[in-house]
Design a protein around this nucleic acid. Structure first.
Length: 426
RNA sequence: GCCGCCGUAGCUCAGCUGGUAGAGCGCCUGGCUGUUAACCAGGUGGUCGCAGGUUCGAAUCCUGCCGGCGGCGCCA
């Protein structure tokens, strides 16, 4: 049987001084001064100092046994005191132990590896909690906005048999004796769904079996993908810009950003737009040895990213470095109607978008050119036989977006329990 | 997959021209009525990643393996 709490810590700051309160929380730290004890109490909404004096607290001896991360129930009075953090504390009248804690293994100065091994205990920290609140808001805001724009959320299967990007990056699984895979993108299913729903999006995990050891890669990441019937590459860039601006503006108002010491200014619109050709020229001038038809490479991309104070679309990538389904330009069939969106401050690529090939013969030709087996893409090809209009879409890496907004040094810090090549637990 | 670095107390690290281990923090005990990473005194703490080799003797030198971190490639 639990006592009823009257407040959460977040509520306390606006209360009248002297208000009697009782609340639950965890002990972040305790300082003992003989007959006076200070407890920093944390409850997920904030932190408050609790002071407990022997003369006021009947079970004072018991309170002395409380350690870090004990769950406790505190009743007392809200009091303003210059000596307390933020000028306010709770003068305890009683403190009850709800759940004991063994000595908490995570202390100040813990290293990266240790914190990842102890992720199940570390996630209660103020900073991790703040990032998770941001993450929750990013998803909420995206969903609300897309709904208002007429997009329908669909749920695509995670168990698939057909590669979107290429066979090497798929996690194989045993599907009752048949080989199946974990999905790496919902795009193909979305392309099917737009013929019924017009504009759709998915927000769900994608999986990549890449041994990618970088601050931008996870083996399991959350993927926001949109797809629109009757639309062009130009339309999809406008959609991305409006969506990301909206998310950035909403999130920039959250106080969680100050908890993680992030000064984030939402980017001005319009976003920059440069062609792949221009990007190559710029990079050559900056001293990079790069030829038309090649991908930028991480360092060059970072350089581009640092050159602008807002996200930049790089448009018109050569078909040699793009997947087979990208629509080719009518003016130059070596070039695709596609773009990457590069986030500023060195964060780099956060989306890829573009127009898809909607003509059966053209798509078949591209599949064959890439040396792929058309039989593997039978239903995807077949969509092109039944009234498939020009259509476009994009995919956004949720953790990459959060890493940029929150100023994180690694995308895994945007995950509660990140999955990387070297980590499947906790 | 490639390149580099790291692995010593619960944590962060020192010790490495070979002579079987130290500090700070934590934790425990005591003291303290205004701390806020509290402080003061005392105490506690080790398969030196694993396996093999060289040696009278290995945390230290050599070989292999395992694990992790950082970067590249790949991508969101």
């Amino acid at each position: 049987m639990l006592e009823r709490a009257t407040h959460t810590i977040k509520d306390l700051w606006s209360l009248e001084e002297g208000t009697e309160v009782s609340l639950y929380g965890w002990v972040r730290n305790k300082r003992e001064h003989g007959d006076l004890i200070f407890i920093d109490l944390r409850d997920g909404t904030g932190i408050i100092q609790v002071s407990a004096k022997r003369e006021n607290v009947p079970n004072f001896e018991k309170v002395k046994t409380i350690g870090r991360e004990y769950a406790i129930f505190v009743s007392g009075k809200v009091v303003n005191d210059r000596r307390a953090p933020r000028g306010r504390e709770i003068r305890a009248g009683s403190i009850e132990i709800v759940a004991k804690s063994e000595p908490f293994p995570i202390k100040k100065g813990a290293g990266k590896k240790f914190l990842l091994d102890m992720r199940h205990l570390h996630i209660r920290s103020i900073k991790v909690s703040a990032v998770m609140r941001v993450r929750s808001e990013v998803c909420n805001v995206a969903r609300e906005w897309l709904r208002k724009e007429g997009f329908v959320e669909i749920h695509a299967p995670s168990i698939i048999t057909m590669a979107v990007e290429g066979g090497a990056t798929l996690f194989p699984i045993d599907y009752f004796g048949e080989r199946a895979y974990l999905t790496q993108s919902s795009q193909f299913y979305e392309e099917a769904a737009i013929t019924g729903l017009g504009k759709v999006y998915t927000l769900q995990p994608s999986f990549r079996a890449e041994m990618s050891r970088t601050r931008r890669h996870l083996t399991e990441f959350w993927h926001l993908e949109c797809e629109m019937a009757f639309s062009t590459h130009e339309d999809v860039m406008n959609l991305e810009e409006r969506l990301i601006s909206h998310i950035a503006e909403s999130i920039s108002e959250l106080e969680e950003l100050s908890v993680i010491n992030r000064k984030f200014e939402p980017p001005q619109r319009p976003f920059e737009r440069i062609s792949y050709d221009e990007a190559i020229e710029i990079l050559k001038e900056e001293g990079y040895e790069i030829e038309w038809g090649e991908d930028f490479g991480a360092e060059a991309e970072r350089h581009l990213s640092m050159m602008f104070d807002r996200p930049v679309f790089v448009t018109g990538f050569p078909k040699s470095i793009r997947a087979f389904y990208h629509m080719l330009s009518e003016e130059n069939p070596e070039v695709t109607l596609s773009s990457d969106l590069i986030a500023p401050e060195g964060y780099g690529e956060i989306t890829t978008g573009g127009q898809r090939i909607h003509d059966y013969e053209s798509l078949l030709k591209r599949i064959e050119e890439e040396g792929l087996n058309p039989e593997d893409y039978s239903w995807y090809l077949e969509l092109r036989k039944y009234g498939m209009p020009p259509h476009s879409g994009f995919g956004l890496g949720i953790e990459r977006l959060i890493a940029w907004i929150c100023g994180l040094e690694h995308v895994r810090d945007a995950c509660l329990f990140p999955r990387t090549p070297s980590r499947v637990r906790p």
